[in-house]
Write a protein that binds this DNA or RNA. Structure first.
Length: 857
RNA sequence: GCCCAGGUGGCGGAAUGGUAGACGCAGCGGACUUAAAAUCCGUUGGCCGUAAUGGCCGUGGGGGUUCGAGUCCCCCCCUGGGCACCA
């Protein structure tokens, strides 16, 4: 079924084979096939209007090579592709042009699919998914619904990042240095009602299970740091001025309790105003106002000139009864620990800076031995001093003992805190998954059947009323986006959906959970079984759809389950996951969280979604700068394919350097791999289009060729397994260059070569395989078998060194011993010269490698 | 500031502690051609050279371990990434 090209014409050949793959469904992954399964997943793209970026095919080529290699080795490979298609740019475009996001999305996906197909990737297109398809987001909503029912989703009025330009709130992770990650617009704090997912409930498991993952260390470390577990103690300080209240602080250094010379509470701390004496009221009020208005950029800025004011109140140190002044300062965050600290300036850098500024005492309570050599603040190990009965104890010992003693008196307890915060899960946007949630009044809530309620009620205050959240019945999912075009932001901080009363206002049946539009069913007003309710108008963030998509590929069209248990049992989770390091924390942490939740529900049998992970590096522009439109250094895959073909692009992307590394693009460089493909072609196809004349039947006659072939089989196999595709290619180049110099080559050698190249350059691989008389697709033609006997030789090269420097070499019998090799070396004039007049003090012989003569004088 | 990754020819890069620079780009010289393209052959780290199976230097800098270091150890410099008042 080969083409009839005489010359290597990628455009014709690639089109031809892409059609074959499409019509024959060459890459279909067969459920329950008898072969071992192998699931290799790419991070699916956001189909932007700009089309495929050159960075996409980099990772996708690597995974494709692995997928094709695994198929050749007899695996049942699942290699799917889909679209992470909810997202702000599509909505922004809709606002600007009035085009429905669905329309834009369809076009963008069509373009992405075309581009991806033109690269010859071996996806099973029957499993394509789109996160914006109601048949998909039905299950995203379903998962949220389960989270809600189990008390892992709640609402909270909390200060969030509001971006006036984008007219939406952003997650902490979407704000970088006070600017929106998308578009670099300034952001500010606003209090809005938000949905929050209790990812912190999984913090320990997310941390612990990192250990077993075959992931890049740096990524594991980033997640560890993000979760930020720290062990310490909560210590209770009595408040003489407020006998009914207490001040609880979190500290990792209970051992330094005797060194606490002041307390600090966050400006948002609930006791802040209560603790403020009349005398200090004005100053504290002013300070709070200032802190609240400060953006977090200012508050956490590098300059970080510390600031604070005294409240006028004191707290009692539980270990010695000392009265300690309480300050308000914005270097203490309400969102971490208890929002209050005991300040130990001698042994904490931040407290030290503050104490110096406000002239507060800085007594040393830890001695590292030589106090002269250990200026304050000192955070190192040592013994306690000036600490009453604890003086003399080692730091670690004292932590235990003080915590235990406080606990015994009911004035403290051991405590673990996490840097990780709960996940702000709502967005005020149109183009996202609607929440399957209704709000009912406080009076109506008790009337609703328990089936639609969460473990603990979720409520919020709205215009003086308390509203309660209930969920839609599972069979009412998906809750689709309304058809009316309402993607203009409301501007109030509410979602555009809030502007569509026909959609928002419904009747809900208190028993069945059924809903009906309010306006069209006014008769229900008198029916006690029907309660008025409002739909939740926020939508889910873009992360939602990508949190579980890898599971949907196992069973993409199932209408009754997220994934059928037997399919989950067969395919499990991805064996290999390839994608950018920019998702090191967010996507990968959120997906792990959802996965663990689904594990708890029994939907997946694996504790972790991605056992093996690889990050491809970023490809820079030719100028070494990050590719960007404004710099005009963007490489368009379409143009490269037009000029050199997809096989050349794929090979070049892999040849650029180690996959994980950041590396610059060089358009000239693609000539090299393009020449390689042409040479490869000419080894198989003669000038007239028939098989090359130099190919002969039967086994390879040339021992050198045979040796190099088998070396290549070994090297390419190992390199593909480890995604070292740059060196796999150079080895293939070496082999092809060698064959080019030979007048005769076995057809078998050529067939092995073609099978080795096929994962990297699949179109030319298929074409040459067919011309060499191969049966069926090269994809399933098996993998060349490495024969070690072919690379073994009787003679080995020994390098001669004198004092570690190269002074010649010789081929010697591989059984030759030290003395025999030394004798051969001595015969070489160059070696002899360097030995002349010197004393041979030592002979180092590494069989098969080296003979090093150590001489003196 | 803290944590991590990395610094190798003109360029991208290769190298289980064992000939540094594989492979490719670019350059130079040559063959083919009326010419060009394409292709092929040779050459290409620096310095010195009686030009050789020659000598010295050379993997960011400085020390060290070793018969032998790009590779291991210590200190420093630079680049990239992450975190950044998390108590």
């Amino acid at each position: 079924m080969a083409t009839n090209c005489n010359d290597y014409t990628p455009a014709e050949i690639e089109k031809h084979w892409q059609n074959v793959w499409d019509t024959e469904k060459t890459f279909r992954a067969e459920d329950f096939a008898d072969k071992p399964k192998y699931y290799i997943l790419d991070m699916f793209p956001y189909p932007s209007g700009a089309g495929l970026h050159i960075g996409h095919p980099e990772g996708y080529t690597a995974s494709d090579i692995l997928a094709r290699y695994k198929r050749a080795r007899g695996f049942n490979v699942l290699h799917p592709m889909g679209w992470d298609a909810f997202g702000l740019p599509t909505e922004q475009y809709a606002i600007k042009t009035g085009t429905h996001p669905r329309e834009t999305n369809r076009k963008n996906i069509d373009n992405f699919r075309r581009q991806i197909k033109e690269l010859g990737f071996s996806y099973d297109w029957d499993r394509e998914i789109d996160t914006t398809d109601p048949r998909y987001y039905k299950w995203t909503q379903w998962i949220f619904r389960e989270l809600f029912r189990r008390g892992l989703a709640y609402v909270d009025e909390r200060p969030v990042w509001w971006c006036p330009e984008l007219r939406t709130v952003l997650a902490n992770e979407e704000v970088i240095d006070g600017l929106s990650e998308r578009g670099n617009h300034p952001v500010e704090r606003r209090n809005l009602r938000q949905w929050v997912l209790k990812i912190t409930a999984y913090a320990d498991r997310l941390l612990e299970d990192l250990q077993g993952l075959d992931w890049p260390d740096s990524t594991k470390r980033q997640q560890e740091a993000w979760i930020g577990r720290s062990e310490g103690a909560e210590i209770t300080f009595a408040l003489p001025s407020l006998p009914d209240d207490q001040l609880i602080v979190f500290t990792t250094r209970p051992d330094t309790l005797f060194g606490a010379t002041y307390m600090v509470i966050a400006p948002e701390h609930p006791l802040c105003r209560k603790l403020t004496t009349d005398e200090h009221k004005d100053a504290v009020e002013a300070y709070i106002q200032q802190a609240v208005n400060k953006s977090d950029l200012d508050r956490t800025d590098l300059a970080k000139e510390k600031s604070g004011v005294f409240t006028g109140s004191y707290a009692t140190n539980p270990v010695n009864g000392e009265e300690i002044p309480i300050w308000v300062a914005d270097y203490v965050l309400m969102s971490y620990g208890t929002g209050a600290i005991m300040a130990v300036p001698a042994h904490d850098e931040r407290d030290f800076a503050f104490a110096e500024q406000y002239k507060l005492p800085i007594p040393r309570v830890i001695s590292g031995g030589d106090d002269e050599a250990q200026p304050l603040p000192y955070a190192g190990p040592g013994k306690l001093v000036n600490s009453g009965p604890y003086s003399g104890l080692e730091v670690e010992e004292a932590k235990q003992k003080i915590t235990a003693d406080l606990a015994a008196q009911g004035e403290g307890k051991a405590s673990v805190q996490y840097r990780l915060r709960d996940w702000l899960f709502s967005r005020q946007r149109f183009w996202g998954e609607p929440f399957p949630i209704l709000w009912v009044s406080e009076q109506d809530y008790p009337k609703v059947a328990a089936d639609w309620k969460p473990e603990n009620p979720v409520s919020y205050e709205h215009e003086g009323q308390t509203l309660y959240a209930i969920t839609l019945p599972g069979q009412d999912l998906p809750l689709t986006l309304p058809e009316v075009p309402a993607y203009q932001p409301s501007g109030t901080g509410e979602s555009p959906l809030a502007t569509i009363p026909e959609w928002v206002e419904v009747w809900v049946h208190r028993q069945s959970g059924e809903t009906l539009p309010r306006a069209e069913n006014s008769d229900k007003a008198d029916d006690p079984d029907w309660l008025p309710a409002r739909r939740e108008t926020n939508t889910m963030p873009q992360w939602a759809g990508s949190c579980w998509y890898y599971l949907r590929f196992l069973d993409p069209t199932n209408e009754d389950a997220l994934v059928a248990p037997e399919k989950e049992a067969y395919w499990g989770v991805p064996d290999y996951y390839i994608g950018g390091a920019e998702h090191a924390v967010l996507h990968l942490l959120y997906a792990r969280f959802w996965h663990k939740f689904l594990y708890d529900l029994g939907i997946t049998k694996k504790k972790e979604p991605f056992s093996k992970l690889f990050h491809q590096g970023i490809i820079l522009g030719e100028d070494g700068q990050k590719m960007s439109k404004s710099l005009g250094n963007v490489v368009n895959p379409d143009e490269i394919i037009d000029q050199y073909g997809a096989d050349a692009l794929r090979c070049y992307l892999m040849f650029l350097g180690p996959l994980e590394q950041m590396k610059p693009w060089n358009t000239k460089g693609i000539e090299g791999v393009s020449r390689f493909l042409k040479k490869l072609w000419r080894e198989v196809v003669g000038a007239n289009g028939a098989l090359a004349g130099k190919l002969h039947e039967g086994p390879e006659k040339d021992a050198e060729t045979s040796r190099l072939l088998h070396q290549t089989i070994a090297k390419v196999t190992e390199d593909i397994e480890n995604l070292r595709l740059n060196t796999a290619l150079s080895q293939l180049m070496i082999l092809v260059n060698h064959l080019g110099r030979k007048n005769e080559v076995s057809r078998e050698t050529a067939r092995d070569l073609v099978r080795l190249v096929a994962p990297l350059a699949p179109h030319v691989g298929e074409e040459l395989w067919a011309r060499l008389g191969g049966e069926g697709s090269v994809v399933y033609a098996g993998w060349p078998v490495f024969d070690e006997s072919k690379v073994k030789t009787d003679e080995v090269k020994i390098v001669f060194q004198i004092n570690g420097k190269y002074r010649g070499e010789a081929m010697v019998d591989k059984t030759a011993d030290k003395d025999a090799v030394l004798a051969i070396a001595r015969e070489q004039s160059r070696v002899a010269q360097h030995l002349e007049g010197k004393e041979l003090v030592k002979v180092i012989f590494v069989p098969g490698r080296i003979l090093n003569l150590v001489v003196k004088g």
